[in-house]
């Protein structure tokens, strides 16, 4: 669950990134965040991840009031969300298995848990046969699925995907979106930041449009475009 209450964000250099943003995203929702580059999408994500703090207003994510979140409690917040990056962020010297296992290891999972969970999650994204491959041996779409598996492996209640199809060809983009929708169907909140208009139009999910720092449209699932 994400809540923005009267959020303003002004950076130290004076740039006004968000203005009076009020949003509520319920647990289990699938939401597109769209807008031009520089519209404030990145700031929106940074606020959710507690990488930046709002200048005015309050952000609540998965029960954490972020204005009151201490730095040392940040890992607790981050463990409730899985993040998918546009550039995949896979470690080239590790196999697919190890890339996914890495996310479990660094939060203290045991080897037994890792060997049980990683193959399962990789089979969810259809990569059970590529566990021993290295990222450079995979296509862009496959690499993004590894990154998705890594985001899922710690069983977060929310997936945040930042331009997940930005570096993937159109056919593969479709596949990635189908996967995200399937993940959402199993109960995980999914937030997709994108400017791939055709995907937004095709999947008809709730769409929040940000322009020049303000929310200019919030179209509910299956609804008419504003």
């Amino acid at each position: 669950m994400i809540e923005f209450n009267g959020v303003h964000k002004v950076y130290d250099n004076g740039k006004e990134a968000l203005r009076d943003v009020n949003i509520r995203i319920e647990k289990g929702e699938f939401v597109f965040i769209v807008g031009e580059s520089g519209a404030g999408k990145s700031t929106f994500l940074k606020l959710i991840m507690h990488e930046e703090s709002p200048t005015v207003g309050e952000v609540v994510v998965n029960g954490f009031k972020l204005s009151k979140l201490r730095r040392r409690h940040e890992p607790k917040l981050r463990r409730t969300m899985g993040i998918v990056f546009q550039d995949f962020r896979l470690i080239q010297t590790m196999t697919v298995f190890d890339n996914v296992a890495f996310a479990m290891r660094v939060v203290g999972a045991s080897n037994r848990e890792i060997h049980k969970r990683v193959p399962y999650v990789l089979s969810l994204v259809g990569l059970q046969d590529k566990m021993k491959n290295y990222p450079k041996e995979l296509s862009g779409g496959e690499q993004q699925r590894v990154s998705l598996a890594r985001a899922l492996v710690n069983n977060p209640s929310m997936i945040v995907a930042d331009e997940p199809t930005g570096n993937v060809d159109p056919a593969m983009s479709h596949e990635i979106m189908q996967l995200l929708i399937e993940i959402n169907r199993l109960g995980t909140t999914v937030l997709v930041v994108t400017h791939a208009q055709e995907l937004v139009e095709k999947f008809k999910k709730r769409t929040i449009r940000i322009s020049d720092g303000t929310v200019i449209a919030d179209v509910p699932e299956g609804g008419e475009p504003a």
Partner: peptide
């Protein structure tokens, strides 16, 4: 630094990093 960024993203504690 990529590994560290991923560790931060998935919620590794500073101790672990």
């Amino acid at each position: 630094r990529l590994e560290i960024a991923i560790m931060k993203a998935v919620g590794a504690t500073n101790f672990f990093i």
